[in-house]
Amino acid sequence: MQQAIKYSEEELILLLKKQDTSAFSYLYDNYSAAIFGVITRMVEEHHLAEDILQEAFVKIWNNFNQYDSSKGRLFTWMINLTRNLTIDTLRSKGFKKQQKISQDEKSVINYQDGGFNTAKFDTIGLRKQLAILKPEQQIVIELAYFNGYTQEEIAKEIGIPIGTVKTRIRSAILELRKLM
């Protein structure tokens, strides 16, 4: 625990570009739980989720020179790297997208019927946040953020134009921004 040291994001990035291991340790202490939360939302199996977390952080360390702060925040880069890694891992392990879709179809119906049940989900924290959203906003965040769907796939899945997918994601995130 290095509670005495607190890096700004700029300092942290600078040190990580120089492959500073104590900065990396700090990065892990501050962001691993948030990143792991997203992984566990995407992967049911706990050991696999930990393996992915480990692989993600090793990848963050090894590829840190590819991070460009002018393109976005450090966390955005890390979480997108992690989400892509998780989706690739799940697909390589034979988790078929079709199965995911059929499950999601059920949840779409639930959303549309207004029969959304928070008790079904184990990640209560996230659920509390997302429960604020309208069902049609929840489903786009669900598919885009946690299931790795492309905009086209979301459009096809819900049966709306791509432009509407974008605006629906925007309105969902705007709701979350008000909340934060």
Binding site: D29, A34, E50, R73, I79, Q129, L176
Partner: peptide, 23 residues
Amino acid sequence: EEAMEKLAMAQAVEPNAAVKSKI
């Protein structure tokens, strides 16, 4: 980005301590 970051922080799950030493 900040909103998404806070969303992730709000649903953080602490991983097993062994993962850090492995990394």
